[in-house]
């Protein structure tokens, strides 16, 4: 049985590129969407709480505490996004290796 190494390499290359396009695009899209959502939430919180402070529904200390909570939320989100990205990379690595393994074993 002859093995055409060039064909194997071309096949693997094509499959890896397709796999990367699908999975990495999804990762980037989700990250952008999450960031936009969080920004909108923080902005809306600030507007509402400023109004509440003006109307006496919040004390100054409570307002300050809520600002701090929003800052923590941003930090928490950054940690979450970093972790989700690492998990995606792990899954992506496994996927790439599987693509390579499947391509090669089908041709050996």
């Amino acid at each position: 049985m002859s093995i055409d190494i060039q064909t194997i390499i071309s096949t693997i290359e094509g499959k890896v590129v397709d796999y990367a396009k699908t999975n990495l695009t999804e990762l980037a899209t989700n990250a952008v969407s999450d960031a936009q959502g969080l920004f909108a939430t923080i902005k809306s919180n600030l507007v509402r709480r400023t109004q509440m402070l003006a109307e006496g529904q919040l004390t100054k200390d409570e307002f300050a505490g809520l600002l701090l909570a929003d800052a923590d939320l941003v930090q928490m989100d950054a940690l979450t996004q970093a972790g989700l990205a690492l998990a995606k990379i792990d899954a992506f690595k496994q996927g790439i290796f599987q693509v390579i393994i499947d391509s090669v074993t089908s041709m050996i």
Binding site: R49, L58, D61, E62, D72, L73, D77, T80, G83, L84
Partner: peptide, 30 residues
């Protein structure tokens, strides 16, 4: 303050709820 205002309690619930959701989201995303 001995007790927080109702407004503060509601607002804190919203933000801390989201903070905990971030922790849950990370774990669930592994």
């Amino acid at each position: 303050e001995k007790k927080l205002s109702k407004g503060a309690s509601t607002e804190y619930k919203e933000t801390f709820g989201m903070i905990m959701d971030k922790i849950i989201q990370l774990e669930n995303g592994k």
